[in-house]
Amino acid sequence: MFRYIVRRLLWMIPVLFFISVITFSLAHAVPGGPFDREKALPAEIIANLNKYYGLDQPVWKQYVKYMSDILLRFDFGPVYSSRSRRVNDIFRDHLPISAQLGVLAMLIALGIGIPLGILAALKQNSFWDYLGMAVAIFGVSVPGIVLGPLLILIFALTLKWFPVAGWGTPAKMVLPSIALGMRESAIIARLTRASMLQVIREDYIRTARAKGLTERAVMIRHALKNAFIPVATILGPMFAVLVTGTFVIEQIFAIPGMGKYFITSITNRDYPVVMGTILLYAVFLVIANLAVDITYAFLDPRIRYT
């Protein structure tokens, strides 16, 4: 197991290398530069800025410089649109906020999705089944971009239970976490139900019942563990997306998170920020997927890593 984890972590190196090369070349392939303004700056100033940031060099040299800065000094480079801040500052100031929001949304998604999926599968065609399906359809049909404003309208403006926007106090965290987690809870509920329905028809469930286990033990020890495998698979990417920041929800609720930088860095050609946010996302994704693979081994003893 330990060797497997080490090998997977070593695999991160080529994966991150590829992602960084592709992102770097794609970002530079987009026409225009970081210093294009509505009112064009004088050519000499742009030339000076380009020289200052090393943008007059060939792209491969810029890439080598960028990567060596990260590897040698853990410096993710400057932010072109701000003189005093660097990409490391963006990570330090905004990542914790996005991560808080993401983890809360994830907890909501799991807390609603998994119990509802299980109940719907165990009591097929009952009230819980219909509720589960309703949540599933609602979740995929009402995206965060719609749910966010609706939640503000109902619970913040009309009922005044929660503040409209912002971040920091627990009350401010409720609405955005729900808006972000709802869709994911629908996906999880759907998948849990489908996977449970498949598992409880397996022979080993009948065997478990036949040898006289209580229904509770059959469901928790035998069915749920196996049914959780496909659910665990989607949790990895889901976690990476939620924790590294979501533009729409952060924008609607005025949350100072990372999501904004994913978008504005591309439209502003702020290359180090583009690279930084994508690499951050990639690292989270690879680690989350590794964690998922490790949980497989706990869920299903037939899965072994050597």
Binding site: S141, V142, P143, I145, V146, P149, L150, I252
Partner: peptide, 22 residues
């Protein structure tokens, strides 16, 4: 969404239309 506090109708209707379609 930018003027949701003062004029919520501006976000309400497009949001509902989008959800209905979905």
């Amino acid at each position: 969404a930018q003027s949701i506090r003062s004029y919520p109708h501006m976000v309400l209707f497009p949001a509902l239309a989008l959800s209905l379609t979905m």
